[in-house]
Deep mutational scan, measured.
Amino acid sequence: MPVRRGHVAPQNTFLDTIIRKFEGQSRKFIIANARVENCAVIYCNDGFCELCGYSRAEVMQRPCTCDFLHGPRTQRRAAAQIAQALLGAEERKVEIAFYRKDGSCFLCLVDVVPVKNEDGAVIMFILNFEVVMEKDMVGSPAHDTNHRGPPTSWLAPGRAKTFRLKLPALLALTARESSVRSGGAGGAGAPGAVVVDVDLTPAAPSSESLALDEVTAMDNHVAGLGPAEERRALVGPGSPPRSAPGQLPSPRAHSLNPDASGSSCSLARTRSRESCASVRRASSADDIEAMRAGVLPPPPRHASTGAMHPLRSGLLNSTSDSDLVRYRTISKIPQITLNFVDLKGDPFLASPTSDREIIAPKIKERTHNVTEKVTQVLSLGADVLPEYKLQAPRIHRWTILHYSPFKAVWDWLILLLVIYTAVFTPYSAAFLLKETEEGPPATECGYACQPLAVVDLIVDIMFIVDILINFRTTYVNANEEVVSHPGRIAVHYFKGWFLIDMVAAIPFDLLI
């Protein structure tokens, strides 16, 4: 008679799926529990143990900040960024110097990925580790590398530091407007667009060049630039800015003055950032001319202004700041037409079709709590990747769950009947059967004279019903998954307890 339990259901295979997918890609990662103190490590794979030199037993239950890997060259700011990422709910990448158990130093890129439950609360953290440099290539500990984003994938490793954006290309926007319009339909740009040429040739750093990471940081200074100062900065030398009595002219307006920039070969870094931020506020060169004239017309309804409409929906549905990093990277690809469009465009503009998908598509409701890094690593669709929660398995109709209350009560009843059979069957065979043979035949009273025979008949009927119930009862397979398919249940029961239950259900007393 089957006594099969499996009270692990309803099970959740999400954690096993993450481990299996990460292991298949030869990654070095740990999984931490966000619900406990210090976000203790609950799993670390073999790749991480080989990377740091510690065994799994030495890593388990330690804080996922990996303070046991810190050393003299470990930056405090990087460690603080990892700790801050564990307090938030967004994906974050941090470069930090770690030390192995043998004392060797290596520069590592740590990717902190939160995993949320159905309520939107962070319950786990996945920390992925990628070695960037070994100890002989690690720089000085005073050099802070965590304020910069990861290198873009479309640049060669040897040319990542030679990417320079020439400031004269930004200063000569109005001069290039006529050349853009003359391109017409034969050019790649839309009317009114501004073409910015980027020099990728390796050259020595000069005062006129600005690194790509500095251009990325310009967006942080746009908020500090007032509207009046932006307007004066875009007017140009024809209309000098008016300053109040006793007030000095704005240095932001002076930063885009061609006369002032041409007199000296070098520009201050602050002026460069502010000038680029001011130019980015204009949607095209037409807006710059309109600002000089004193009238700013409404933005025209053409394809170039609607190019950012799908980007707005993608940004609203993005799951991490990696989408913004990807957008900034692609927006700086050289030799393309940049349409400086305000994100607050007309909502009635139709979304044009684009061959290049900048932001990841909208994630469906079932995966809105899973970050983009987890979705990318697992390579699963929205119909396959579940949320991290207890999910009731989908069972067929008329199927009994093996952990249901009805099955528990039924098993206790069958257990009592088995005990009765084990006690009274030998007793009936030894004593009652002998008395029946010696006594007179009682054929007239039937079952009324033999109450134990009636009980034995009921017990046999219950055993037959138990066999039928076992054909529709779920079970737990070797992978700790609840199986509810009727065919698989029948095959599993035939290979197991079916023969024993059938022999126990045969009414031998009635056959004798």
Rank of each mutant, 00 (worst) to 15 (best):
V3Y: 09
R5M: 08
R5Y: 13
G6E: 13
H7T: 05
A9W: 14
Q11A: 15
N12C: 08
L15F: 06
T17L: 13
K21A: 07
G24E: 07
K28M: 13
F29G: 01
N33Q: 07
N38F: 04
A40F: 05
I42T: 01
N45K: 01
D46P: 06
F48L: 01
C49P: 01
C49Q: 08
E50C: 06
C52A: 13
G53R: 01
R56I: 01
E58A: 03
Q61R: 13
F68K: 01
F68Q: 01
G71Q: 01
T74H: 01
Q75W: 01
A78H: 13
A80H: 08
A80V: 13
Q81R: 10
A85G: 05
R92D: 08
K93V: 08
K93P: 06
K93F: 11
K93A: 13
V94A: 06
F98Y: 14
Y99N: 01
R100W: 01
D102G: 05
G103P: 01
G103K: 15
S104R: 07
C105W: 15
F106L: 01
L107S: 15
C108N: 01
V112K: 01
V113F: 13
P114V: 01
G120F: 07
G120K: 09
A121E: 09
A121I: 07
I123K: 10
M124S: 06
M124K: 04
F125M: 05
L127C: 06
N128W: 06
F129Q: 01
V131R: 07
V131G: 11
V131S: 12
V132I: 14
E134Q: 07
K135E: 05
P141E: 10
H143C: 15
D144P: 14
T145R: 12
A156Y: 06
P157F: 15
P157V: 07
A160I: 14
K161S: 06
F163C: 15
F163R: 15
R164F: 09
L167P: 15
L167D: 10
A169D: 06
L170S: 14
L170A: 14
A172L: 01
A175C: 09
A175M: 04
S182F: 05
G183S: 05
G184D: 14
A188G: 06
A190T: 14
G192W: 01
G192Q: 12
V196Q: 01
D197I: 01
D197V: 01
V198F: 06
D199P: 15
A204K: 15
P205S: 14
S207W: 15
L210S: 10
L210W: 15
V215N: 10
M218G: 10
D219E: 06
V222M: 08
V222W: 09
G224Q: 05
G224H: 09
G224V: 13
G226Y: 06
P227T: 06
P227V: 09
G236T: 08
G238I: 11
G238H: 14
P240S: 09
R242Y: 15
A244L: 04
L248K: 03
L248A: 05
L248D: 13
P249M: 11
R252G: 14
R252T: 15
A253C: 14
H254D: 12
L256F: 14
L256N: 07
P258T: 11
D259T: 14
A260I: 07
A260G: 12
S261T: 06
S263A: 12
S264G: 14
A268K: 11
A268Y: 12
A268P: 09
R269Y: 13
S275G: 09
S278W: 08
S278R: 09
A282K: 14
A282Y: 15
S283G: 09
S284R: 03
D286K: 05
D287C: 06
I288Y: 15
R292N: 14
G294H: 14
L296D: 07
P297N: 04
P300N: 14
R301G: 14
H302K: 14
A303P: 07
T305I: 07
G306I: 12
H309I: 09
R312Q: 07
N317Y: 12
T319V: 07
S320Q: 11
D323F: 03
D323K: 08
Y327G: 14
R328P: 12
R328S: 14
S331D: 15
S331M: 05
S331T: 14
P334C: 01
Q335W: 07
Q335S: 08
Q335L: 04
I336M: 12
T337H: 14
L338F: 09
L343V: 09
F348V: 11
L349M: 14
L349I: 10
A350N: 08
P352H: 02
T353P: 15
I363Y: 15
K364M: 10
K364T: 07
E365F: 09
V370F: 15
V370Q: 05
T371D: 04
T371H: 04
T371K: 12
E372F: 03
V374R: 01
T375V: 14
T375S: 07
L378F: 03
L378R: 02
L378E: 01
L378T: 02
S379P: 04
G381S: 07
V384I: 07
P386G: 13
P386A: 05
P386F: 05
P386L: 01
